[in-house]
Amino acid sequence: MKKIINGKLYNTQTAKLLGEDSYSHPGDLACWSEELYQKRTGEFFLYGQGGPMSRYAQTTGQNEWSGGEQIQPMTIENARQWAEQHLSADEYEAIFGEITEDDSKKNVTFSITKDAIELLARMASETGKTRSELVEEMIRNHR
């Protein structure tokens, strides 16, 4: 599905599928499926579809409903909440990183150019430091 929302393009064909969940039972009009995606820009969105008694239902007339589909942009916090509820712990950590009991570190998402990502990866390889360590070092040393 491809949709423009608030001037931004959301496309399930070009975004990365991160996880999915569904409910279905033969003949159940409340069936649904949802897929969490991440765009190349780092933005998250949810693609959902469902039957005429699901939250994706669409009206087709007076007291008449059919199944439907929808794309919903999500903040990183909304994406994390959805993933906590619908994915396994391993799937969650594959997307958002390992969860530690130490809250001195926080995961953040931001966009940088492809060239900068390649440079950061090369620096990590040369120094033996993680990309996170390098970024934190750059921030702390910036004056």
Rank of each mutant, 00 (worst) to 15 (best):
T59Q: 10
E43F: 03
C31W: 11
D28V: 04
A30S: 14
E91S: 11
Y56R: 00
Q58K: 11
G42Y: 07
N63M: 09
T60E: 12
G42Q: 04
Y37W: 04
E43A: 10
Q81S: 14
G27V: 01
H25N: 14
C31R: 05
G48V: 00
Q81K: 13
H86N: 15
Q72M: 14
K105N: 07
I95V: 05
K16H: 12
A15S: 07
K105L: 13
S22D: 11
K106W: 11
W65A: 01
E69Q: 15
A116G: 11
E93I: 04
F44I: 03
S24L: 04
E98I: 09
E69G: 05
E118M: 10
L36K: 01
I117M: 13
F44G: 00
D21Y: 11
T109S: 08
Q38N: 06
E98W: 12
M74Y: 11
E43H: 04
R80Y: 04
A89G: 11
T14M: 02
W32V: 01
H25F: 15
T100K: 12
L29N: 05
G67Y: 00
E43G: 06
E34N: 03
A57Q: 03
G61N: 04
P52C: 12
D115N: 14
N107I: 12
E91L: 07
S111I: 08
G68R: 00
E118C: 08
S111F: 15
Y37I: 02
E20N: 13
Y56W: 03
L87P: 01
P26I: 07
E118Y: 12
E77C: 10
Q70R: 09
E84V: 07
A116T: 14
T14N: 06
S88I: 06
S54N: 05
E84G: 09
D103S: 09
S104D: 15
W82F: 03
L119T: 13
A30R: 04
N63W: 09
L119G: 12
E43M: 04
Q70G: 05
E69Y: 09
A116E: 11
A30Q: 03
E77Q: 15
V108F: 10
D28W: 06
I71L: 05
G68H: 01
G50E: 00
Y92N: 02
A57S: 08
S54H: 03
G42W: 07
Q38E: 09
I112H: 09
Y23N: 10
G42R: 03
S33L: 04
Q49C: 11
E43Q: 13
L120C: 07
G48W: 00
T60M: 14
V108T: 08
Q49R: 15
K105M: 09
L87G: 02
T109V: 13
T100F: 14
I112S: 05
E64V: 13
W65L: 02
E69N: 14
L17M: 11
